[in-house]
């Protein structure tokens, strides 16, 4: 799946967990954007998003990996890796 499409999907999911005041930050998102520090998200909500991603794409992201998904880039990389493994 194209990284830009994946990011669009991710941003849509993230929006449901963000205060309206913080949502404009999604427009300036980069790979370095930190979910907690920059977007003011609760880390537990990120786990909820990961579960949604797993269910949607039929992949599994290991628990030890979830704890390292602090930035948008790290999250996209991991999802793309799991998708690639699935399609092998």
């Amino acid at each position: 799946m194209d990284r830009a499409d994946l990011l669009k999907e991710l941003k849509s999911m993230m929006g449901e967990y963000m205060h309206d005041d913080d949502k404009p930050r999604l427009d300036n998102i980069t790979d370095q954007t930190d979910f907690v520090k920059d977007l003011h998200m609760d880390s537990i909500d990120l786990v909820d998003i990961i579960i949604q991603v797993e269910n949607k794409y039929g992949i599994e992201i290991k628990n030890e990996a979830i704890g390292k998904l602090n930035t948008v880039g790290a999250c996209l990389n991991t999802i793309q890796e799991r998708l690639a493994e699935k399609n092998l």
């Binding site: 449901e16 967990y17 963000m18 205060h19 998200m41 609760d42 537990i44 909500d45 909820d48």
Partner: peptide, 8 residues
């Protein structure tokens, strides 16, 4: 509440 808390 945060949107995540309220939603759930």
């Amino acid at each position: 509440l945060s949107p995540g808390v309220f939603k759930s």
